[in-house]
Simulated assay, not measured.
Amino acid sequence: MPLSAVELLDDTHRLDVFDCGKPGLNAWLTGFARTNQTRGFTRVLVVHENRTVVGYYGLAPSVIQPNSAPRAIRTGRPPDPIPCLLIGQLAVDRRYAGQGVGSGLVKDALRRCTAGADIVGGRAVVVRAIDTDAERYWQSWGFIPSRDNPSVLMRSIQDVRLWLAESSH
Rank of each mutant, 00 (worst) to 15 (best):
R111C: 14
R111W: 15
R111N: 11
R111Q: 14
R112Q: 15
R112H: 15
C113P: 05
C113N: 08
C113W: 02
C113S: 11
C113L: 04
T114I: 09
A115Y: 13
G116M: 12
G116P: 06
G116N: 09
G116C: 07
A117V: 06
A117Y: 07
D118M: 06
D118E: 13
D118Y: 06
D118A: 12
I119M: 10
I119C: 07
I119T: 13
I119Y: 15
V120L: 11
V120N: 04
G121T: 06
G122L: 08
G122E: 03
R123S: 15
A124S: 11
A124W: 02
A124H: 03
V125S: 03
V125P: 08
V125G: 01
V125L: 04
V125H: 06
V126H: 03
V126Q: 05
V126Y: 02
V126M: 07
V127P: 02
V127R: 00
R128F: 15
R128A: 09
A129T: 04
A129W: 01
A129Y: 01
A129K: 01
I130D: 00
D131Q: 05
D131T: 07
D131R: 04
D131M: 09
D131P: 04
T132Y: 13
T132G: 08
T132W: 14
T132E: 15
D133N: 08
D133E: 13
A134Y: 13
E135N: 06
E135V: 15
E135R: 05
R136H: 14
R136F: 14
Y137R: 00
W138G: 00
W138Y: 15
Q139M: 13
Q139N: 07
S140D: 15
W141F: 13
G142C: 06
F143I: 02
F143T: 00
F143D: 02
F143H: 01
F143A: 01
I144P: 01
I144R: 03
I144V: 14
I144C: 03
I144K: 03
I144D: 11
P145S: 12
P145A: 10
S146H: 04
S146P: 05
S146D: 03
R147I: 08
D148F: 12
D148L: 07
N149Y: 15
N149A: 10
N149P: 05
N149H: 12
P150S: 08
P150E: 12
S151W: 13
S151G: 10
V152E: 00
V152D: 00
L153A: 03
L153Y: 02
L153P: 00
L153F: 14
M154W: 03
M154Q: 08
R155K: 11
R155H: 10
S156H: 04
S156Q: 09
S156W: 02
S156P: 03
S156A: 14
I157N: 02
I157F: 05
I157W: 02
Q158S: 11
